Amino acid sequence: MTHATQPAVRGHYFVPAASHYSTFLSVGIFMLALGFVFRINGTPPGIWSMLIGAALILYVIVGWFGEIISENVRGVYSLWEDRSYRIGMVWFIFSEVMFFACFFGALYYIRRIALPEMAGFEESLSPYGKFSSVWPNAGPLGDAFMPMHAWGIPAINTMLLLTSGATLTWAHWGLIKGKQSQLTLGLAMTVALGMTFMGFQIFEYAHAYSEMGLTLGAGVYGATFYILTGFHGLHVTLGTIMLIVMLGRGMKGHFSEHNHFAFEAVAWYWHFVDVVWLILFVFVYIL
């Protein structure tokens, strides 16, 4: 698809030539996982295996996506490919929904089922001694900590992400109306807001570790806090990288008002990340 026309209608589906990227990706994922296993077991080569695996994955991402962008710009895609990409992105976001649902489900189980059951034992019969099921809670074996309050950096980050959703939508309107400057400015603002969010989260983590005792050793509260906020932060990081790519492509004129699914896919992903944060803000920071 060129940036000046809509996807063509053809009677066949574009089949690319055989690629070595899938093999390199498999090897990279294996090396990364193997290195992680070595690392947690104290084996010295672990860090090198992880670095090699990460380098291979990065090579595949840049090379493979570069080929797809090149095919798109050359106009080899039709409505068949466009439809399949949309279906694929919908299923990908659904898998992400299920991913976070598992962790929110674990948080619900801990707070509403596990802790009350543990606190329900008679003190003389309980292996944990006197134990209360109030939340936040480190559990019977966790270290002492101070809980993270919502009305500080978390509230600021909430406003940042909500604003980024608005600037991204504004950029999309500019793209639909053919206003290049609005598209570029909106994307640049969204990237800046995403990077600011990440900066605040890094500061929050440093403060929690050094001054609040809120570490992974702080029992179930620390574990659920860092798993949920950490994975969300990873998604914000990946989303920001994708937005930077969209900014570069937009500045090169790869998109038109009728042909910009790559932009739409990243926008879907970013709005999903926004929604997850709102749920996380309520159930991790407020309740």
Score class of each variant (00 low, 15 high):
Thr224Gln: 15
Leu214Trp: 00
Ala218Met: 06
Gly219Phe: 05
Leu216Cys: 08
Gly213Arg: 04
Ile241Trp: 04
Tyr221Phe: 13
Gly222Phe: 01
Gly222Pro: 02
Leu243Val: 14
Glu211Leu: 11
Gly219Trp: 04
Leu214Glu: 01
Ser210Ile: 07
Phe225Ser: 00
Gly230Lys: 12
Met212Lys: 11
Ala218Thr: 06
Ser210Lys: 13
Val245Trp: 11
Ile227Gln: 14
Glu211Thr: 09
Ile244Tyr: 10
Glu204Asn: 14
Val220Ile: 12
Val245Asp: 11
Ile241Ala: 11
His235Pro: 08
Leu228Trp: 00
Ser210Gly: 02
Thr224Glu: 10
Val245Met: 13
Thr229Cys: 10
Met242Leu: 15
Gly219Val: 00
Val245Phe: 06
His232Ala: 06
Thr229His: 01
Tyr205Asp: 01
Val220Gln: 10
Tyr226Gln: 12
Glu211Arg: 09
Gly219Lys: 03
Val220Ala: 12
Gly230Ser: 04
Ile244Arg: 09
Ala223Thr: 15
Phe225Pro: 06
Ile227Met: 12
Met242Asp: 10
Glu211Asn: 10
Val245Asn: 08
Ser210Tyr: 04
His235Cys: 09
Gly213Cys: 01
Gly239Trp: 04
Gly213Pro: 04
Thr237Ile: 03
Met242Ser: 13
Tyr221Asn: 05
Ala223Tyr: 15
Gly239Arg: 00
Ser210Glu: 10
Gly219Ile: 00
Tyr209Leu: 12
Thr240Asp: 02
Gly230Ile: 09
Glu211Gly: 00
Leu216Phe: 15
Val236Lys: 03
His232Gly: 05
Leu214Asn: 00
Tyr209Asn: 04
Glu211Ala: 05
Phe231Asp: 02
Val236Asn: 04
Met242Arg: 08
Ile241His: 01
Thr229Ala: 05
Thr229Trp: 01
Leu243Thr: 09
Gly239Val: 02
Leu228Met: 11
Ala223Val: 15
Gly233Cys: 11
Leu214Cys: 03
Thr229Met: 06
Thr237His: 02
Met212Gln: 15
Tyr209Ala: 02
Gly239Ile: 04
Met212Thr: 03
Gly233Met: 06
Ala208Pro: 05
Gly217Glu: 13
Tyr209Gly: 01
Leu243Asp: 14
